[in-house]
C-alpha cells in the first residue's frame, strides 16, 4: 500500500493559498508531487459540485484551502465557504463518504511552509487509506473518460 501514489486535487483561492504555494516554491521547500492545484478567485467560488466531480474523475483525496478567517481578499468569501463546508461535510459523512479524504485548510500567502506541511501530511494520510475504490465502483465508467 505504501507504494500507492494518490491523486489529489487542491481547490485554492488565488490570494492566500495559491500565493502561499508560490512562496513554498520561491523558498525552495520540497514536498510530495501528488497534489495538483486548481486556482479560484476565492473559496467562496468553490461549488461543492467541484469536490464531488473530483472524486468522480478519480481523485483519491481533495484539498480545499483559502485565506484565514478575517483575511479574505473579498471580505467574506471564506466565511460563506466555511458554512458550505460544514454542512457539506456533515452530509457526505452521513451518506457514507470517507470525509478523511477531504482536507480543508487555511493557508495564507505567508505560509509557504504550512502549505508544504499540509501537502505532505495529507498525501501520506491518503496513501495509508489507499485508492478510493468505493467511489470508483459508483462511477463504473471507462476510466479514461471524463465523468460529466
Amino acid at each position: 500500500m505504501s507504494d500507492f501514489q494518490p491523486k489529489i486535487v487542491a481547490f485554492v483561492c488565488t490570494w492566500c493559498t495559491y500565493a502561499g504555494a508560490d512562496l513554498a516554491g520561491t523558498s525552495r521547500i520540497k514536498y510530495e508531487p501528488n497534489v495538483k492545484i486548481i486556482r479560484f478567485p476565492c473559496t467562496g467560488r468553490i461549488d461543492y459540485m467541484f469536490l464531488i466531480k473530483a472524486f468522480a474523475n478519480g481523485a483519491d483525496g481533495v484539498i480545499v484551502s483559502g485565506c484565514h478567517p478575517n483575511d479574505c481578499h473579498y471580505v467574506s468569501g471564506n466565511f460563506h465557504a466555511r458554512r458550505r463546508w460544514i454542512v457539506f461535510r456533515e452530509l457526505v459523512d452521513f451518506l457514507g463518504m470517507d470525509v478523511n479524504r477531504l482536507c480543508f485548510s487555511w493557508v495564507s500567502a505567508a505560509e509557504g511552509a504550512q502549505w508544504a506541511k499540509i501537502v505532505n501530511s495529507f498525501t501520506e494520510e491518503i496513501r495509508q487509506l489507499g485508492p478510493y475504490k468505493a467511489y470508483m465502483e459508483l462511477v463504473k465508467k471507462d476510466k479514461n473518460e471524463s465523468v460529466f
Partner: peptide, 8 residues
C-alpha cells in the same frame, strides 16, 4: 466565529 473542528 462559526464553529467547526476540521479545518487545518
Amino acid at each position: 466565529d462559526d464553529k467547526e473542528n476540521f479545518i487545518r
